[in-house]
Design a protein around this nucleic acid. Structure first.
Length: 491
RNA sequence: GGGCCGUUAGCUCAGCGGUAGAGCAGUUGGCUUUUAACCAAUUGGUCGAUGGUUCGAAUCCAUCACGGCCCA
């Protein structure tokens, strides 16, 4: 596209700004990079916001601030930097000099800090520099950018204009660093395991398929880091974790994005009960540190991370939320199938009792688990990587964690019996061959690792996105992912 | 994949068969310690796209695109 066409395509607002930029070019480089701020807006507000005008004036505090012009109010402008906002004031002479500044421009300003009659801090401009000309007009100052599609497609605009969006991603960053700090303080090593895998393992899900040209090899985007992290436990990393993306080739919804962030961690010489205790303490700690409290307000409901989390088994929870159902019925494959059919759950012939129970659980219990709740004793049939319960081989030493009716975490005592693991893989392969494209592959090397011996261990994965949704009162997972996936626009 | 809803100025939205509108932003001027600053004037549009119905379509119908919510 030629310059002429480019200019022709601009609307009038952009064309006007482009003319100002052209004028700046004639005077020199319009994109200088020699201004250095020495303080952030929020630092000024925090240090001096409470001072009276009389207290502040004699101090004659000098400040260099830089940021984006967000509003104009007579001789004042509002500057926004990463930390917050500060006003700047231009006398008549300076006003003439900065007449070409537009809302959205990035500027640097130096002067003395003052307080206005109404009690707001401002920097009285002595020297000023336009650092970057903004060519596109920002959305409206009062309503901000509300169009969901544009907020997701142009997140940078959303971040400039909507403070709630900035807050959401600040909290996200704080949650991730809080979890990282919690684990590191307890002796966990952070690891990075392959995102490109030849055998996608560690979960039952449809993977993304890709191709490595040089090796001429079909590869998969990982669906979980689990099997690699447990190889590290075999290798002697008794406490290890990874915070990174998983990819699952599934639909998108308010709760699902094809790539999402998990923290997975493994701890040798511990079991699933230790993991539940750790989870409870970690989430309580992170909530307190990030939110300043342990009650979480979410979409009109309140969830209390301060109280001990409820714990019940899969069967107990089904009985609790289905008063007409008895434990005997749930334990019988024929009767359990009848119950599921009565609930309108489609069943495959291949489903065993454990799978049927979980279908009933997901349909009738999951969405009702509002307050923080651990559900334990998941059937072995649906837990191909978890250790069987010593007292009841039908179930595993596994739990899932729910808040607000959503699964947030999944953990278990690890299966470290190589022969049992091989058998479970064989079952998965049989299911895959029967048409279940979510079933697992047989991972020979993982079996080999277990044959070297993995210490008794437990591990867990926590869905970061869903946790951040809770902590930021976000109704959609897309609100907590900076650049959620969208269909490309044509042309 | 199915159902419902949406797409109009840079942004937020009215208009729902008869000349395309408002607020903010922009431009010009005034004011000059403002707080969604204010006052006056003013610019700005393939009404998502393509077909159709009609004397006449932003408006009704169909198809498509993109998005949202709910369901599978």
């Amino acid at each position: 596209m030629t310059d002429d066409q480019q200019h022709h395509d601009d609307n009038k607002l952009i064309a006007e700004r482009r003319q100002k930029l052209d004028a700046l070019r004639e005077q020199g480089n319009p994109f200088p990079n020699d201004f250095r701020h020495d303080v952030l807006a929020a630092e000024l507000q925090q240090a001096h916001g409470e001072k009276t005008k009389e207290e502040l004036e004699p101090l004659a505090i000098r400040a260099k601030v830089a940021g984006r012009v967000m509003a104009r109010r007579g001789p004042f402008m509002v500057l926004q930097d990463q930390s917050g906002r500060i006003q700047i004031y231009a006398d008549k002479a300076i006003q003439q000099e900065i007449k070409h500044w537009d809302i959205g421009d990035i500027v640097g300003v130096e002067g003395v800090l003052h307080k206005s009659g109404k009690g707001d801090l401002y920097v009285m401009i002595e020297r000023q520099q336009l650092l970057t000309k903004s060519l596109r007009p920002l959305p409206e100052k009062w309503h901000g950018l509300t169009d969901t599609e544009q907020r997701y497609r142009q997140r940078y605009v959303d971040l400039i204009i909507n403070e709630e969006t900035r807050d959401t991603f600040r909290i996200r960053a704080a949650v991730i660093s809080g979890i990282r700090q919690y684990l590191v303080e307890r002796g966990f090593y952070e690891a990075e395991t392959p995102m490109l895998q030849v055998i996608p393992g560690g979960a039952t899900a449809r993977p993304f398929v890709t191709h490595h040209n040089a090796l001429d090899l079909q590869m998969y985007m990982r669906i979980a880091p689990e099997l690699y992290l447990k190889r590290l436990v075999v290798g002697g990393f008794d406490r290890v974790f990874e915070i990174n993306r998983n990819f699952r080739n599934e639909g998108v919804s308010t709760r699902h994005n094809p790539e999402f962030t998990m923290v997975e961690f493994y701890q040798a010489y511990s079991d699933y009960r230790d993991m539940m205790n750790l989870t409870e303490d970690m989430l309580r700690t992170v909530a307190a540190n990030v939110l300043g409290k342990t009650e979480v307000e979410y979409q009109g409901e309140s969830f209390d991370f301060g109280k001990p989390f409820a714990r019940m088994t899969v069967v107990e929870s089904i009985l609790h939320f289905n008063p007409g159902v008895t434990e005997q019925q749930l334990g019988d494959i024929v009767e359990a199938r009848e119950i599921a059919k009565g609930l309108g759950i489609p069943l495959k012939d291949s489903y065993g009792l454990g799978k049927v129970q979980i279908e009933i659980f997901e349909k009738t219990v999951e969405h009702q688990l509002k307050q923080p709740t651990f559900i334990t004793e998941y059937p072995t049939e649906v837990s191909p990587l978890a250790r069987r319960s010593d007292s009841n081989p039908f179930v595993t030493d596994r739990f899932e964690f729910f808040v607000g009716g959503r699964e947030i975490a999944n953990g278990f005592s690890e299966l470290n019996d190589a022969e049992d693991q091989a058998e479970r893989f064989h079952k998965q392969v049989a299911e895959k061959e029967a048409g279940d494209d979510e079933a697992m592959f047989f991972d020979e090397d993982y079996i080999a690792a277990l044959e070297y011996g993995m210490p008794p261990a437990a591990g867990e994965g926590i869905g970061i996105d869903r946790l951040v949704m809770l902590f930021t009162d976000s109704p959609s997972i897309r609100d907590v992912i900076l650049f959620p996936h969208m269909r490309p626009l044509h042309k």
